[in-house]
Simulated assay, not measured.
Amino acid sequence: MSTYVDGFVIPIPKNKVAAYKKMAKLGCKTWMKHGALAYYECIADDVKAPYSLNFPTMCKTKKNETVIFAFIVFKSKAHRNQVNKKVHKEFGEMPGAENFAMPFDVSKMAYGGFKTLIQG
Rank of each mutant, 00 (worst) to 15 (best):
I10V: 13
I10S: 04
I12P: 00
K14G: 07
K16H: 14
K16A: 12
K16T: 10
K16E: 12
A18K: 13
A19K: 15
K21Y: 01
K21M: 09
G27H: 07
C28E: 08
K29H: 00
M32W: 03
M32S: 08
M32N: 03
G35K: 06
G35Y: 04
A36W: 07
L37S: 05
A38T: 07
Y39N: 03
E41P: 01
C42G: 11
A44Y: 01
D45H: 12
D46K: 13
D46A: 12
K48N: 14
N54K: 00
N54W: 00
M58T: 01
M58L: 13
C59Y: 00
T66Q: 06
T66I: 06
I68V: 15
I68A: 05
A70C: 07
F74G: 09
A78V: 13
A78G: 08
V83K: 04
N84P: 01
K85T: 10
H88T: 07
G92D: 03
G92P: 02
E93A: 15
G96P: 06
G96I: 00
E98I: 03
N99T: 08
P103K: 06
D105P: 10
D105Y: 13
G113W: 10
F114A: 09
K115P: 00
T116E: 14
T116C: 12
Q119L: 11
Q119C: 09
G120L: 12
